Lab assay of single mutants.
Amino acid sequence: DLPPEQWSHTTVRNALKDLLKDMNQSSLAKECPLSQSMISSIVNSTYYANVSAAKCQEFGRWYKHFKKTK
């Protein structure tokens, strides 16, 4: 379990794929700090720029909290 400071584009993509087993992209976009188009691009590997470090950390913090509450 990585601390949010160490999250990267790959970590975010893997976490998104895991979350999308249980929910669809639009529900996920309402919950998490990423937009639906960004989620779609990341999981389909069409998001060519890497997600910014700040966004990765924000998502990492959100993901840890989300997993605790589920």
Rank of each mutant, 00 (worst) to 15 (best):
C56G: 01
K21V: 07
I42C: 05
L16K: 01
K67Y: 05
K67F: 05
S41H: 15
Q6C: 11
H65F: 07
S52F: 01
K21T: 09
K30I: 10
P33E: 02
I39V: 08
S26G: 11
P4C: 04
P3L: 12
I39H: 01
Q57W: 07
S40G: 08
L34T: 01
R61T: 13
V12P: 15
P3W: 10
L19T: 04
C32L: 02
S41R: 14
P4S: 09
D1S: 07
V12T: 03
A15T: 14
Q6V: 12
S52A: 07
A15S: 05
K70W: 13
L34R: 02
K21D: 15
N24W: 02
P3G: 09
N50P: 11
N50A: 06
H65E: 12
E58W: 00
S37W: 09
A49C: 14
D1C: 03
P33G: 13
H9I: 15
P4F: 07
P3E: 10
M38S: 12
R61Y: 09
A49Y: 15
M23C: 06
A49M: 10
M38F: 01
A54R: 13
K70E: 15
G60T: 04
A49F: 11
L16I: 10
E58R: 02
G60R: 02
K64F: 10
S8Q: 15
S26K: 11
S37N: 12
Q6T: 14
N44K: 14
E58G: 03
A29Y: 06
S45I: 00
S41V: 04
R13K: 13
R13Q: 07
S40R: 11
A49V: 11
N14R: 14
G60H: 05
S8G: 11
H65C: 06
Q25T: 12
L19G: 02
Y47V: 11
A53P: 06
L16W: 02
E31K: 15
S37L: 10
I39Q: 01
P3K: 12
Q57H: 08
A29C: 09
P4E: 14
R13C: 10
W7A: 02
L19Y: 02
K68P: 05
K64C: 09
K67S: 10
N24S: 09
Y63L: 04
S26R: 11
E31W: 03
W62M: 02
W62V: 03
E5G: 04
T69C: 05
E58T: 03
N44G: 12
H9T: 15
Q57Y: 08
F59A: 00
A49E: 08
H65P: 02
R61G: 05
Q57N: 10
I39N: 00
P33A: 01
G60S: 04
Q6A: 13
L28Q: 02
N14A: 11
A15Y: 02
I39L: 06
H9P: 15
L16A: 03
D1L: 06
G60A: 12
K21F: 05
A15L: 03
I42F: 07
N44C: 12
T11F: 04
M38I: 05
P33Q: 07
S45Q: 11
S45R: 13
L20I: 04
D18H: 14
M23V: 10
N24Q: 04
L16Q: 02
N24L: 04
W62L: 03
Y63R: 00
Y48A: 11
F59T: 00
P3V: 14
S27K: 14
P4I: 13
Q25H: 07
T69N: 04
K21E: 03
C32K: 01
H9K: 12
N14E: 13
S52P: 11
K21R: 13
R61W: 06
L28H: 05
K30R: 09
S8K: 05
P33H: 06
T10E: 15
K30L: 11
V51F: 09
L34W: 05
D22P: 02
T46Q: 05
K30V: 09
P33R: 03
A53G: 06
L19M: 07
V43L: 15
T69L: 11
A54P: 04
L19D: 02
K21M: 14
K64W: 11
S41P: 03
P33K: 04
N24Y: 02
P3N: 14
C56I: 13
C32V: 03
S41N: 10
S45A: 09
N50R: 10
R13F: 05
F59C: 00
D18S: 10
P33Y: 02
I42A: 03
K21P: 03
K68R: 12
S37K: 09
L20G: 03
A54Q: 09
H9E: 15
N44L: 02
H65N: 14
L34N: 01
Y48P: 12
N44T: 09
P33T: 02
E58K: 05
S27Y: 15
Q6F: 04
G60N: 01
S52E: 08
G60D: 02
K17M: 14
K64V: 08
S35K: 09
T46I: 07
S37H: 15
P3Y: 05
V12G: 03
N50V: 06
C56M: 10
L34V: 03
V12D: 02
N14H: 04
S37A: 14
V43N: 13
R61E: 13
L16T: 01
T46G: 11
S35H: 12
S52D: 05
E31T: 11
S52Q: 05
N14D: 10
D22I: 11
C56R: 08
M23P: 03
S27W: 04
K64L: 13
I39F: 03
K68T: 13
Y63S: 00
L20Q: 03
I39P: 00
A29R: 04
Q25I: 14
P4Y: 09
E31C: 04
A29I: 08
V43R: 04
Y47G: 14
T46L: 05
H65Y: 08
N14I: 08
R13D: 00
A29S: 09
M23L: 05
Q36I: 08
R61N: 04
S27C: 03
L16E: 03
L34I: 05
W7P: 00
D22H: 13
Q25C: 07
K55V: 13
L19I: 07
A53C: 09
D22S: 15
K67W: 05
D1Y: 04
A49L: 08
D18E: 14
Y48T: 14
F59P: 01
Y63W: 09
F66I: 05
R61C: 13
R61D: 07
Q57C: 11
A53V: 06
N24I: 01
W62G: 00
T46E: 12
K30E: 14
D22A: 06
P4Q: 12
W7Q: 01
I42K: 00
D18F: 06
R61S: 11
S45D: 05
S35D: 12
K67E: 09
K17V: 07
K64A: 12
W7Y: 04
H65Q: 13
S52M: 01
F59V: 04
C32P: 01
L19V: 06
P4A: 11
S37R: 11
S52G: 08
Y47S: 12
